[in-house]
Design a protein around this nucleic acid. Sequence first.
DNA 1: GTCTATAACGAGATAGAC
DNA 2: GTCTATCTCGTTATAGAC
Lengths: 225, 225
Amino acid sequence: MPSVTGCRGLYGEAVADTRQRLIDGTIETIRTHGLNGTTARSIAATAGVNQALVFYHFGTVHDLLQAACLAATQARVAPFVERLDEVTDLRQLLALGRSLQADERAQGNVTVLAQMLAGAQADPKLAEATATALQLWIAPIESALTRLLADSPVAEVIDTPGLARAVSAGFVGLELYEGVDPEGTEAALDALDRLAVLIEVVDDLGPIALRALRGKLRRTTKKSR
Amino acid sequence: MPSVTGCRGLYGEAVADTRQRLIDGTIETIRTHGLNGTTARSIAATAGVNQALVFYHFGTVHDLLQAACLAATQARVAPFVERLDEVTDLRQLLALGRSLQADERAQGNVTVLAQMLAGAQADPKLAEATATALQLWIAPIESALTRLLADSPVAEVIDTPGLARAVSAGFVGLELYEGVDPEGTEAALDALDRLAVLIEVVDDLGPIALRALRGKLRRTTKKSR
DNA sequence: GTCTATAACGAGATAGAC
DNA sequence: GTCTATCTCGTTATAGAC
C-alpha cells in the first residue's frame, strides 16, 4: 500500500501508515478493552505492528493516548458539524443527538471519550487532552443552541454555554450508563426526548400565555438565585 | 478499639475492623488515585494494613472493589433518601441534587461511582456491581419524581423511570466532566437549574394555557415517536 | 523504521512463620 | 488474623541487530 508521504524505512514499510495504524489501534483497543486494558502490547497487537514501535513513534504510551484521543475526536466531529448546521429546531437537534449517539455507540467513540474522561480524573496531563477533545464537541453544540434559541423567550433565562456543557456531559454519562444497563439508557433517552418537546411547546405558545410565562420565568429565576 | 463482633486473631486485632478499614481504604484510594491506581498495595497502604490481608479477607482485589462499591453507596444513599422525602417541588429536588452533588464531590463518592462505571465497561463482573450500586440511587429519585409529578400535566408525557435514569447518568457525566473543567460544570448545573424552573413554571400556568399546552404536548409527542 | 531480546519494575497472589 | 518473603506474570521502556 502506497504511503501518503512516501517515506519508507529499511523494512519497506510506510511511516505515516504505521503512525496511523497505531492511532487507530489505540482507539479500537480502548473501545474493546477499556483504558485499563490499553497497553503498549495490546495496542500493537490490534494495530498489527511491533510493540517497540509505540515508543519509537510516540515516546510513551501516554503520549500515544493523547494523540489518538484528539485525532479520533477531530475525525468524528467534522461530519457532525455539517449535519448540525442543517438543524432548525430543538426536536431536530435532539433527533440528531440520538442518531449521532447511535452512530458513536456503534463505533464506540463516546465510550472512548468516557474512558479518557474517567482516566483523566487522576491524571492532569490526560485531563488536558480530554478537555480539548470534549471542547471539540461542545463548541458546535453551543453554536447550534444559540442559533436555535435566539428568538425564544426561553433564551432569556437559559445559559446556552452551560446547557451545551450539560448536554455533552450528560451524553457521556448516558454512554457509561449504557455499559451497565442498556434498557435503562433507552428509557432515559426517551425521557429526554419528551423534555425537549416540552421546551418546544413552550416556544409555540400563544402570545398571551407566552407573556405570562415570560414574567413568571423572570420572577422565578431571580428568586432561585 | 473494641470490635463489634469481638473476634480477635493471634495478633490481637479485631477482624471486623480490618475488613472495614480495607473497604474504606479502597474507596479512598479510588478517589485519590483513580481505579487504575487502585492496587492491593495502594489500598493496603491507605488502610494502614498489610497487603496480604486484602487476599485473606476478600480473595481478590476485584471482590474487594465490588464490596467497597456497594458498601459505600449504601452508606451514602440512606441519609439522602431521608432528605428526598421532604422535597415538595421540582426546584427543591434540584436544589437537593446540587447540595448532594456538592457533598458527594467533597467526599469524592460520585467520582468513585464514575470510576466504577468506566471500569465496568470492559468488565462484566464489575458492571453488575456498579449497576446495583447505581440502582440504589435511581430508585429513590424515581419515587420522588413520581410523587412530585403526580398532579402535573407534564406527568402524562414524561416517563419517570427514564427521567430518573437520565438524571442519575447525567450527574455522573457531570462529575466526570468536572474533573477536566470545573468552571464549565458550574455553568452546566446553572443551566439545568433554569430548565427545572421552566418545567415548574409550566406546572403553574393558568387553566386555559394549561389546557392548550396539554393538547399540544399530546399531539407533539405522538408525532415525534 | 522495524525487529528481537531484555532490563527494570510493579502487579496479583500464595506459603508459611507467628 | 497477621506478617514477611517470594513466585509469577505483565507492564513500560531501551539496546542493538538488520
